[in-house]
Design a protein around this nucleic acid. Structure first.
Lengths: 184, 184
DNA sequence: TAATTATGCTACTGCAAGTAGCGTAATTTA
DNA sequence: TAAATTACGCTACTTGCAGTAGCATAATTA
């Protein structure tokens, strides 16, 4: 969206978004959410800190954008709701297990509790798309889908936060079975 | 534990723990986790900031202690596992809905992701007691109980973080039904 | 009265988010 | 080629908070 507000004058933006996102996840993975300072991310990405702020209004916004990129579109494969849920949950668990993603998610998430502006970014940019797509794929009410998202993401993040490790496979399968049970 | 390392000499500690905890929750409720600075908490409690640090080693430790106090012992009432789970989950949801508690929990939780020392405090002081008691009351393996705690607390906190509001009653009941389904 | 311990207070360090301003590089348009 | 334009890197700065140091003082026991 809005890559060019002007027709075509001036120095073009350097194509460093991918490097910045990668550097962000690397920094979070290595130093934790709080330890991943904007200075560090900038250095790791080979970019000036001011450039980061020219593109993203805050650290929370940068990390959210990074998460949106890291998750991407959800794979909603399968013929029935059970299959769709199974693949989606496995996919979500795997993404949260990717280096830095879980910690980044948990961090931005909690910042959002105290920061309404960030909460709106998080809700609109990250959650809303999945909410809509899932609602459509499952044929369920918004309330029910919202509930499922809370259960799945909440559980995965809680495990990540308490143990510092992503959830093991057998527990993910238990989570899938439990959620499927709701829709039966 | 260890309220008096010395027999009885010197000025006694002022009995301000209750005021500090109350001021902590008030501050978190009003300003959010990040906005609840140690200075603000101290002023709200009518205590010097240095006094806070004389009693709790860090902000995270203070908030965790505050949460331990706010939750207290879990009411494990009921004759069968379903009843126990139902009362326990309703109770947890209500506590998280108490002013400041949900935000404080979410905040300290995410700080813990980046801070192993705090994670240990959180795990030992807050989670471990409930884990033990629930394991005993439900007669289930540690893995299963841990899973249930992840599901319940994760879901409630995720809702709190995304919406800024505690989970509504009917969703809590859905959560209870879902968890009970696991044990059947 | 002396020893002891906790408190309030002021001042400080360290660090990270976010900002301002400058000189300069890479484009488009005339 | 020469403006005009826009993004960049860089340095330096402000602001705010966690956590610390040191001192005078209050409240207790021996």
């Amino acid at each position: 969206m809005q890559e060019s507000t002007s027709p075509g004058a001036g120095r073009p933006r350097a194509d460093v978004t991918a490097e910045v996102f990668a550097a962000t996840l690397r920094s979070v993975h290595e130093f934790g959410y709080a330890g991943a300072t904007m200075d560090r991310i900038a250095v790791a990405a080979g970019v000036a800190k001011t450039t980061l702020y020219r593109r993203w209004p805050s650290k929370g916004a940068l990390i959210t954008a990074c998460l949106v990129d890291a998750f991407g579109p959800a794979p909603l494969l399968g013929e029935d709701r059970e299959a769709v849920l199974t693949t989606a949950i496995r996919w979500g668990a795997a993404r949260i297990g990717d280096p830095g993603v879980g910690a980044a998610f948990a961090g931005v998430f909690t910042d959002a509790v105290s920061d309404p502006a960030l909460r709106e970014i998080l809700t609109n940019e990250l959650q809303a798309p999945y909410l809509r797509v899932l609602q459509d794929a499952l044929g369920e009410s918004e309330q029910r889908v919202r509930f499922v998202i809370d259960v799945v993401m909440g559980t995965l993040l809680h495990r990540m936060g308490i143990s510092g490790e992503p959830m093991a496979e057998d527990d993910v399968e238990a989570l899938i079975a439990m959620v499927i049970g709701v829709f039966r």
